[in-house]
């Protein structure tokens, strides 16, 4: 755990700097009230009223995040496999090839169903 002390120290310095800057900004800057300044910025026109419920996003983003989780988990398994690759031998290789192939089937399915199209 000793190796984590420097990380904590660096994190503390960064945190002090970031919080300090944000606090300082509220002290050093001028404050002149103007109603228009506090409106949401939309290129100078009156802000478009927000739709009820805050609007919607394409489901693509959800699908991307889902695909990201799947590949993230794949990466998480690839790393220990890669680190002890030489010790695992051919058996480890075959194991991982099976795993990659199965995930690749999922990937090919998503591709085929248009989950990767963004136009």
């Amino acid at each position: 755990m000793n190796a984590y002390a420097p990380i904590l120290v660096l994190g503390a310095i960064a945190a002090a700097f970031a919080v300090g800057s944000v606090v300082m900004a509220s002290l050093t800057g001028p404050k002149r009230y103007n109603r228009a300044k506090l409106e949401a910025y939309e290129c100078g026109i009156e802000p478009t009223p927000q739709p009820v419920g805050g609007g919607r996003f394409p489901i693509k983003y959800y699908l991307t995040a889902m695909l990201f989780i799947v590949f993230d988990i794949e990466i998480v398994f690839l790393y220990p496999w890669a680190v002890s690759f030489d010790a695992l031998g051919i058996f480890g290789l075959v194991e991982m090839l099976l795993f990659i192939a199965t995930v690749f089937v999922a990937y090919a399915y998503v591709w085929r169903r248009g989950g990767l199209e963004w136009d």
């Binding site: 900004a25 800057g29 002149r32 300044k37 506090l38 409106e39 949401a40």
Partner: peptide
């Protein structure tokens, strides 16, 4: 310059 600018918090 940035430090001397107004620190805005928008209404919404």
């Amino acid at each position: 310059k940035l430090a001397l600018k107004e620190d805005l918090v928008v209404k919404g």
